[in-house]
Design a protein around this nucleic acid. Structure first.
Lengths: 199, 199, 199, 199
DNA sequence: GATGAATGAGCTTTCATTCAT
DNA sequence: AATGAATGAAAGCTCATTCAT
């Protein structure tokens, strides 16, 4: 057990907790549930996270870092805004398909349980990396004349709400096709909504 | 106490529970909390709803009925799809501003706590009225040639995700302006995304 | 509803309660259950019996009266003790087969829930009619020289314990044959145990 | 607290619960009552037994094991059936006198509350050890020609019903003499009922 | 670091009984 | 006599967190 570093152990806990929280909900997942899923004692888990809430907060920071890193890659590419939109949608949906727990956690745990994230994650502090990348994408597009210059939140809400909504529908098993099948449609819709009129 | 009918009393309970659930969350709102907020005993509350979950399910049905009724009014008007979009966004945002508990409940309680609504509200049964109205709007628009003929869920996700996302941002007090200030922007974005190319 | 006398109404309540108590147990049967089974309101039921316990006590008195009446008939017949034993066993088993609720109530509710019958039915006050008839049977037999003169309770315990035990086994669906099939065997065993040595 | 093993702790809980259940009844004994009687917290009690019913079931198994062990000793002795009957009655009554809670539990809790023991203790599964020893005693006696060959249940019901009935009368403080004073009478009655005719 | 027994407050739910009508 | 909404105490059970080892 002493083989792995404290940091690796924390990661492992977060990974297991993320899966349980996203699958069962924050309140319906117990600390013993999490401990058992890692094969660790309840008491020891508290050596790594001082409370269930603290664990939940660290997880959302981890997810934000993960997603923003992927967005940063796209932002750094020298491609049109239209192509970037397609890539962002693609990354989001592929993540939702391959690591559904991440997006589910974002939507069902983080966004929906204000009371848990109140102290320490107010506003969007704990997901600011992620928001920043969307902002960079949007402002780049406007600067290049590819996107209409509108209120940032109108654009941000479109992106996040639309993608989140689709993943919700997918999670409810309402969508008749796999998520990836919607990438083209949705990218097009977003692009049409955001593009500048001269294009 | 016999002044009010059993049905009115149920409505009153639902109203108080709706406010508490949307404000504090399902799990962090207790039955005694609800009873106290109405000035009713805990035991008596169970004469009206057989469980906390049953209460939550009746509330979402009530919200779906409320919203779908408003949408039906719009669908019945003889106006363009563009105007309808504007009216739908307007109704949604005004509801969110005036009865924030309804939209918050929809987003934070209903959509995010699958386990609560599993038995009896699978799929979107408990909000089917509402979904139906969106479908009618969309298919009418396509039939009239005003909207592009695309996958319904691509359109539905745009509507519900986008509007929900904005209300989320508003609830987090992130939006710099009141919700209503975004009606024009958002209506335009949605219309651009959905309209047929010949328009 | 005013057609029937108060006494008839009480009987009806006792009858329904007897069935429910014997089938489901005293604590697992609720007053609303009883009220519903008669088609009467909960409040009105309390006009006839001042509490659940009072109802239970009246029921056991009723059962004792019913059984003792049958035993009195046997005691008054001019037949041998051996024949009387056979008739008593027969009455008991036929009652258990045809009105199982009576014997079940006696065994499972009355004998097993001391706390309910503590005030008002101490000792065997509420079943004294019944005990008295067994005592008459036994003392008659001794007087006639047909039964051994032994401690009354040794004889009473044999009668009541043995018969009760068989009904228990029957209720548990453990007996391979119907109750009545055991009448001869059991009568013989009791007679052998009790008869005087000169016979 | 770590002085005692988990198994010893379970035994201790069962012991205290047994006394309370037999004295006060299953439904009138609360989990807090039991916890308090051991000096343990309510929550911790649930670390040992997953429910009140599970606790009740383990207790009856324990009692059955206890009694059957004593009966096995008697069955293994090389003595006549008449002597065995005397010893069995003696063991039963001494147990009832010294550990009244055991017999009371058997009679008042186990036999009378079917609903509690329905899942997991159907038929006589949870007391099968005990029933088996009575069966061995009876069949040995028949084989040796000391007991009449009759239906096993006619004999079993006599044994268990009679002994149970006497303990009931004792528990009701109806018997004028201590239980032990009845051992000879009752043994004789049982022997007369069961013995083969040639003896 | 690691364990898991122990705590106890607090949850949802039940139900005998009352009482205004 | 009759109704059934209303009460509220108390039940069984859960679970985040602690702490002795």
């Amino acid at each position: 057990m002493a083989r792995v570093s404290k940091e690796e152990r924390k990661k492992a806990i977060m990974h297991h907790a993320l899966i349980l929280f996203s699958r069962e909900g924050f309140y319906t997942t117990t600390i013993p549930d999490i401990a058992k899923s890692i094969g660790m004692s309840v008491g020891n888990l508290y050596n790594y996270f001082k409370s269930k809430e603290a664990l939940a907060k660290e997880i959302i920071k981890y997810i934000s870092a993960y997603l923003s890193e992927r967005l940063r890659g796209i932002n750094e590419e020298d491609i049109s805004s239209e192509e970037k939109i397609h890539k962002i949608v693609s990354v989001y949906f592929h993540t939702a398909a391959e690591k559904p727990e991440m997006i589910e956690y974002f939507l069902r745990i983080y966004l929906s349980n204000r009371e848990i994230f109140q102290n320490g994650c107010e506003g969007m502090i704990c997901v600011s990396d992620f928001v920043t990348e969307i902002m960079i994408f949007f402002e780049d597009g406007v600067r290049k004349g590819e996107l209409r210059d509108q209120d940032f939140f109108s654009a941000f809400g479109l992106f996040m709400g639309y993608l989140g909504g689709m993943v919700f529908l997918f999670g409810e098993e309402i969508l008749p096709k796999p998520l990836e099948a919607y990438i083209d449609d949705i990218s097009r819709n977003i692009y049409r909504a955001l593009k500048s009129d001269e294009n």
